[in-house]
């Protein structure tokens, strides 16, 4: 048995936020199982990423540094990870619930015929099992699930676990050869258009969202302004997206994104059950709505009943002053 493995995602030589969270969660699982924590660092020119994984608490690093891994492709990384897991038999494998992490977890589980639980929001060790709390039915119910076989493959929801802090730990990584040569990887990446600047909804500490109550595309201006003043992300309800007022990648809810910011400010959003499914795990919810009976007020800690076109500019001005902007 070779302990707990965590898959590291990185960009420009830096650990991604989700990977610091996975390292933090992995440390706790390792300690619970009394087993070492191994970070998997795959990519090109990733010696610095390996050092960073040690600094964030890994006991060992298993790495592969190769041009074929320069950009994530599940057909390159999947067989590499599955091969290593077959040879070394980890007890648990934790990955971030990112687009790449989800693909890799599914690939690895299928290749190993192993069990997989996705989207964990809390973990607890019981004996040699890792019990995973995860939402089901779009967050309308919870379940506690565990994998009966080994390895126990688990993906973790973004922002659900505290990030590991960097310390002074160092170590020597073990480097292995890739599983597939470039010629054996069928998928070729022919272009990447990086995401536009701006805070992504799933990473955001603060989200300001608009709904039907903003009344039209122009109505998002004060919502966007408040998001910018707070350094937060701009969200929207499905009603606003379906009306064509704002692009779909801003949608929060059951058929949009699931978010867990520290602060969620809902403006002109009634709080339909589908919207709640996407944001009810926010630490604090503030609702601004002209309808005092809107269901959103049942979720909110603070609320203002009134006209968002008067309240939002006042809030932006007040925050600007307090934050010295």
């Amino acid at each position: 048995m070779s302990g707990v493995w965590v898959f590291i995602e990185h960009q420009d030589g830096q650990l991604k936020a989700i990977s610091k969270e996975v390292l933090g969660a992995g440390r706790a699982v390792s300690d619970g199982l009394g087993a070492p924590l191994t970070a998997l660092v795959f990519g090109q020119n990733v010696v610095g990423v390996a050092a960073s994984a040690f600094a964030h608490g890994a006991d060992a690093v298993l790495g592969c540094d190769d041009a074929s891994l320069a950009r994530f492709r599940v057909e390159a990384v999947g067989p590499l990870l599955a091969g290593l897991a077959r040879a070394r038999a980890p007890q648990a494998l934790l990955l971030g619930g990112s687009t790449n992490g989800r693909d890799l977890a599914a690939w690895t589980a299928a290749e190993l015929d192993a069990g997989l639980v996705s989207d964990g929001i809390a973990l607890a060790v019981a004996g040699d099992r890792v019990k995973v709390t995860r939402p089901v039915y779009a967050g309308k119910l919870l379940s506690t699930v565990y994998v009966k076989s080994s390895p126990q493959i688990i993906t973790l929801r973004s922002r659900a676990f505290p990030a590991a802090a960097a310390g002074g730990k160092t170590g020597a990584a073990e480097w292995v050869a890739p599983a597939r040569s470039e010629a054996d990887i069928p998928t070729k990446i022919v272009g990447l258009e990086a995401k536009k600047a701006g805070v992504s909804l799933t990473d955001a500490n603060i989200i300001v969202s608009g709904g039907r109550g903003v009344g039209g595309p122009e109505g998002f201006a004060p919502v966007r302004e408040l998001a910018e003043v707070l350094g937060g992300a701009l969200g929207a309800s499905r009603a606003a997206v379906d009306a064509g007022w704002i692009p779909y990648d801003h949608q929060v809810g059951q058929t949009g994104k699931t978010v867990s910011p520290n602060l969620y400010i809902a403006c002109g959003i009634s709080g339909a059950i589908q919207h709640q499914a996407g944001m009810r795990t926010a630490k604090m919810i503030v609702a601004i709505n002209k309808d005092a009976d809107a269901p959103i007020f049942k979720l909110a800690q603070y609320g203002i009943v009134g006209d968002l076109f008067k309240i939002l500019p006042a809030l932006s001005a007040e925050f600007r002053q307090r934050l010295g902007k």
């Binding site: 960009q11 687009t99 790449n100 998928t187 070729k188 022919v190 272009g191 258009e193």
Partner: peptide, 12 residues
């Protein structure tokens, strides 16, 4: 549409 942006890929 992945976390990093829009990726264009060709596969057999």
């Amino acid at each position: 549409l992945i976390d990093e942006g829009k990726e264009t890929v060709t596969a057999p």
